[in-house]
């Protein structure tokens, strides 16, 4: 299936979910669904860098928060519609991702990972000390109750859900497109062996920069509507540990070599956490994610997708013909 067709089909699936949720008319469903969709975007963004090229980004929370705080800044200056905010958040986080990559990607992979850990704390310190966006006290963003589109009233949370759904479909399409292109081949060679990749003519630094930029941009876009969703944005919630750990755990549990993995991981873990937060404490909830992550990386190297391949197709590895739809632009 070509990418535009894939986008339309996924969008149709998303639309069906949206309509069904509207028929149930339960705002909680939208609140919970929004979080799951947001995790699909985060996990997919993480996976383009981590799963495809093998560079681990521990700073997902930082990129997410950058998107969220871009919105806060804009909200104070001149309020804009959510899609524009997403675009701005994406550009800001994408640029920071590019900068991080440019500074550290010439070095060994571990340095990049450590630097992303550091980035989260530096940014949090900056935000805590920046009074314009509320500093450590946080910032209130008054969310409109509803939106009117052509005399048609729609609850604001439904609107947020809808935009995040479009973003999720978009990021899955991008991830799938990357995976099946020349770029995806290049990314995989970087994951396997960078020196050999260079010898084959793969411009590894350029490709890694593309991956960090894409990763940062998607995470920033996921964070942009967050202030409207949460209503009151504190540094500790924007830089929440759950984003950093889920962004890694979801692709690793779902299967990091394909766009399907983060989707599976995000839907399963995201839903599980929504249920667990209601029934048990959020700390236990995070503990489960941590244990699942550690357990999966030890026992199931290629996540749920890997298990699936092993049991249903008798393959232990993902080796086989890579799909490539089209070479070149």
């Amino acid at each position: 299936m070509r990418s535009p067709a894939f986008f339309l089909v996924s969008f149709a699936v998303g639309l069906v979910v949206f309509v069904l949720a509207r028929m149930l008319d339960n705002d909680y469903l939208f609140f919970a669904g929004y979080t799951v969709l947001q995790y699909i975007v985060l996990a997919t963004g993480w996976n383009i860098l981590g799963g495809y090229t093998g560079y681990v980004n521990f700073g997902s929370a930082a990129f997410f928060a950058l998107g969220a705080y871009s919105t806060v800044v804009l909200h104070k200056a001149f309020p804009m519609p959510i899609p524009v905010l997403m675009l701005v958040g994406g550009i800001v986080s994408g640029l920071v991702g590019f900068g991080m990559g440019y500074l550290t990607l010439r070095l060994r992979g571990a340095f990049f990972s450590i630097a992303t850990l550091a980035l989260a704390v530096v940014l949090q310190t900056l935000i805590v000390n920046w009074d314009f966006v509320g500093g450590s006290r946080g910032a209130y963003i008054i969310r409109p109750h509803h939106l009117e589109i052509f005399d048609y009233e729609i609850g604001y949370i439904q609107y947020l859900f809808f935009t995040m759904m479009v973003l999720a479909v978009l990021s899955l399409t991008v991830a799938r497109m990357v995976e099946r292109s020349r770029l995806g081949y290049g990314f995989a060679t970087i994951r396997d062996d960078e020196v050999a990749a260079e010898a084959c003519g793969v411009p590894t630094l350029k490709l890694k920069l593309i991956a960090t930029t894409l990763c940062g941009a998607l995470m920033g876009m996921a964070g942009a509507p967050f202030p409207y969703y949460i209503g009151y944005l504190q540094p500790s919630s924007a830089f929440g540990l759950e984003y950093a750990v889920n962004a890694i755990a979801m692709p690793m549990i779902g299967g990091a070599t394909s766009w399907v993995g983060p989707l599976i991981g995000a839907v399963l873990l995201g839903t599980l956490q929504q249920v667990a937060t209601v029934t048990i404490s959020s700390a236990v909830n995070l503990l489960i994610v941590g244990l699942l992550l550690t357990g999966f990386v030890i026992i199931a190297p290629n996540g749920i997708l890997g298990l699936f391949h092993k049991y249903f197709r008798g393959k232990t590895d993902f080796v086989g013909r890579r799909r490539i739809d089209r070479i070149g632009p």
């Binding site: 981590g50 093998g54 681990v56 521990f58 571990a110 990972s113 994951r191 540990l241 750990v245 890694i248 755990a249 690793m252 990091a256 995070l286 994610v289 941590g290 244990l291 992550l293 550690t294 990386v297 030890i298 190297p301």
Partner: peptide, 12 residues
């Protein structure tokens, strides 16, 4: 990739 994720899991 997985080793880093493992230690991150432990930290967490």
């Amino acid at each position: 990739l997985r080793g880093l994720a493992f230690f991150f899991g432990l930290l967490f």
